[in-house]
C-alpha cells in the first residue's frame, strides 16, 4: 500500500492520549497501520494514510480516538450535497 497515498492532512482523525488506556484495539483493526501502541498508549504514526473508515473509533472502549467516518465516493458526496441544498428529497445514497 506504500505506493498508494491520497491527500495528507485532510482526515478528521484525532486522538486524546489522556483518555487512552492502551488496549491496542485501534492498532489491530486499522487497515493502514495509522495508530500504533508505544509506551502503553496509542500514537498516530501515520495520520496521512487514514481513510476515515471509522474502525478504530468504533472499537475504542474509551472514546479516545475519534474520526468522522464516511463513504469516500464521489456520487455519494454529490448526492449528499443535493440533499443538503434541498434538491433531493431522499437521503444521500449511491451504489
Amino acid at each position: 500500500m506504500k505506493n498508494f497515498r491520497y491527500l495528507e492532512d485532510k482526515a478528521t482523525l484525532a486522538l486524546d492520549r489522556d483518555l487512552c488506556v492502551g488496549c491496542g484495539a485501534c492498532a489491530t483493526v486499522c487497515p493502514h497501520g495509522v495508530p500504533v501502541i508505544a509506551e502503553g498508549k496509542a500514537r498516530l504514526a501515520d495520520p496521512g494514510a487514514c481513510m476515515e473508515c471509522g474502525a478504530c473509533a468504533m472499537n475504542c472502549p474509551t472514546g479516545a480516538i475519534t474520526v468522522t467516518p464516511g463513504v469516500g465516493c464521489a456520487s455519494y458526496i454529490v448526492s449528499a450535497w443535493l440533499h443538503q441544498a434541498g434538491l433531493q428529497r431522499k437521503g444521500p445514497g449511491c451504489c
Binding site: L7, K10, T12, H32, P69, G72
Partner: peptide, 19 residues
Amino acid sequence: MNFTGCTPYTSPSGVEWEM
C-alpha cells in the same frame, strides 16, 4: 474521480476537498 469510491485508501474528507 468517481473511482475514489472504490479504493481502500481515499478519505471522504479528502475526496470532498478534491471534488
